[in-house]
Design a protein around this nucleic acid. Structure first.
Lengths: 194, 194
DNA sequence: TAACTAATTAGATTAATATCTAATCGAGTG
DNA sequence: CACTCGATTAGATATTAATCTAATTAGTTA
């Protein structure tokens, strides 16, 4: 993930003068002094901004005699603009797999929990066990610190053997412990039923 | 859509810390101290960045006891990311008109407000009047409920005739009133200076 | 009410950055 | 070669903004 690049792109676009330059060039190439004139700024200022826009490949230039014409690289802008959306999006294919897995998991959950939300027993099969634990653990809040007592109480709402289950939470990396304070791990660390 | 907003959006995204916050929240809501911990920064720094992200509506928050969980407004990010692409697709003149309008509005604001932020007088011309009201109303928070007294006090910071101005806010759909409690309308409902 | 906890504000410091003027460069042209 | 013209560099200034510590606020709990 090239975070720096995304930052550089948005930083460049996050300035009114540069956006106005981009907007101007969207109507066709222009040379420096023309841009300066239209924006009411001096040539050095334009050079300054052009440099930043060129750094991120948003413009390129062609020379004609003494005059340099600046062109907009439109496709790059469109492409880069989408990158941010992708950053917060799930990856291809992941969606289908998720749907499938959801159906399966749903069945397991229904099998092992009563209508009151009690855990009938701890599944022996590893895959199902992890599904059950993940289900339970999702009721906890990311980033929140749980004293052991509070965590025990939480688990007891599902099953009275909180000690075993609490230990499983640690073993399977759903949570970690630091002097008797428990906290959820980021989801990437969780053991996953594959 | 005004240029200012596009600039504000990209400026907000043009900072590595804020991008990292966005990336974190893409995995689910988190509270301030958790973010601070994961990024190795202090809570005030997080508050600072959260404020900027909230200003552009990229995050919203829900409170649980003392803890405020910050959520990502994913659809807005995707939508805003596309806006830049649209900007450069605009036809000849349209962009310049937008820029022009911005300059004009800026001038009107400068003309009618003193350096201390006081409104000299209410413009007679409808177009200018709306520009002035919109400027004032942008200092109010979306979603917040304002008792009449509080709203009066806010308006008085600009001009002593709060009654007239408060009435104008309603007439022009910047706000609505429900038994003496005032609240901002969504921006789409505001009267716009065409 | 008092104590606690998470968030925010205030204020200071430091780093970036937008803009200008003046000086310089570099590619054509007489 | 000397001159011109557009672009760039250098350097100064002012503004914005990121971050911290310390103090304060606001909601919750004992």
């Amino acid at each position: 993930m090239q975070l720096d690049k995304i930052v550089a792109f948005h930083k460049a676009m996050g300035d009114p003068t540069r956006l106005r330059i981009v907007a101007l060039l969207a109507n066709g190439p222009l040379h420096g002094q023309a841009i300066a004139g239209k924006l009411g700024l001096t040539p050095p200022t334009i050079t300054h901004h052009i440099k930043k826009l060129r750094d991120i490949n948003v413009i390129f230039e062609r020379r004609d005699k003494n005059t340099i014409y600046f062109h907009l690289n439109e496709s790059l802008i469109k492409q880069q603009a989408k990158t941010l959306g992708k950053l917060i999006e799930k990856k291809e294919g992941e969606v289908e797999a998720m749907v499938q897995q959801n159906i399966e998991r749903q069945k397991v959950i229904e099998n092992f929990f009563t209508k009151d939300g009690k855990l009938k027993n701890i599944p022996a099969q590893r895959k199902k066990k992890l599904m059950v634990f993940e289900y339970m653990v999702r009721g906890l809040k990311a980033g929140k610190k749980y004293p052991e007592k509070e965590l025990n109480e939480y688990i007891t709402k599902f099953h009275e053997d909180y000690a075993t289950i609490r230990r499983e939470f640690i073993i399977n990396h759903y949570m970690y412990r630091e002097n008797a304070i428990y906290e959820l791990n980021p989801e990437e660390m969780w053991a996953k039923p594959e």
